[in-house]
Computed example of a mutant assay.
Amino acid sequence: MVPGPFASIGLPGLPVIGISGLTSKSSSSCAAAKGSVSLELTVAGAPITAPDTPGYEVDLGLAGRLVVNEQIPVEGADKGLTVNAVHLTTLAGVDVVIGSSTSSAHDCA
């Protein structure tokens, strides 16, 4: 059983999203940028197993998009990565990120 969420997102037209045990990690060197996410996630009270795969999407129907382990390169860095643990967007214009980390390496020769 998933423990009670430390964050809960409830919006009209979407199932309630619960998040606990969240960590977002990003590390960068001149050789590589890496990221990972660990969390316990529920949607409408049901546990969701999210693999540690960048850009994993959880189906919320047409009204919203939930991405777990969103990884975005850092602009202007030789190597860099922003890792958003949970990123929710909706057709109504809601844009929520919970748990984010960024790292970058510059002046790599």
Rank of each mutant, 00 (worst) to 15 (best):
G80L: 02
L81H: 02
V97E: 09
A33H: 07
I17R: 05
P47N: 01
T82V: 13
L39Q: 07
L62T: 12
V43W: 09
K34F: 08
S38M: 05
Y56H: 13
N69K: 14
A46F: 01
K79W: 00
A105M: 10
T82D: 01
K34S: 11
P3G: 06
S100I: 00
T102M: 12
I9Q: 02
V37K: 12
L11Y: 11
T49F: 03
G13D: 09
L39V: 05
S101F: 08
K25C: 01
S8P: 01
V68E: 09
I98R: 12
H87Y: 06
H106P: 00
F6V: 10
H87K: 04
K79Q: 15
N69F: 15
I72F: 00
D107W: 11
V83I: 10
T23C: 01
H87T: 03
G45K: 05
C30P: 11
V86P: 05
V67I: 15
A63R: 14
P3W: 06
P3F: 07
E70S: 14
L41N: 04
D95E: 09
D107S: 12
A46M: 04
L66A: 07
I17H: 03
V67Y: 04
V83D: 05
I48T: 02
G61E: 06
S101L: 03
A44M: 02
G21C: 03
V58D: 07
V2R: 11
A44S: 11
A109P: 12
A85G: 09
L88E: 06
P51Y: 06
I98K: 12
S104L: 02
G93F: 09
I98L: 15
T82N: 04
H106G: 00
V43S: 08
V74C: 01
G76W: 11
S29G: 10
P73Q: 02
E57K: 14
A105E: 05
L14P: 03
A63L: 15
C30W: 11
P5F: 08
L11Q: 13
A7Q: 10
S38Y: 01
E57F: 00
T89E: 10
S8H: 02
I17V: 11
P15V: 04
D95K: 05
V16T: 15
I9V: 15
A92M: 12
M1A: 12
G80A: 07
V97K: 15
I48A: 00
D78H: 12
A50H: 07
V68W: 10
G4L: 10
L88F: 12
E75T: 13
M1S: 14
G80I: 07
A50R: 09
S36T: 09
G55Q: 08
A31Q: 12
L62S: 14
V83K: 10
G18I: 03
G10D: 15
D52L: 02
S26F: 06
T49R: 00
Y56D: 01
S28I: 07
I17C: 06
A50S: 14
I48H: 02
A33Q: 10
T90H: 09
N69I: 03
V16P: 00
V16S: 07
A31C: 00
L66S: 09
T53Q: 14
I9K: 08
P51F: 07
V83Q: 12
G21N: 14
L88Q: 02
L88D: 04
V68P: 15
P12K: 11
I98S: 05
T82L: 07
N84M: 09
T23L: 06
E40H: 05
S27N: 14
T53I: 08
L11R: 14
S8A: 12
V58C: 06
D52C: 00
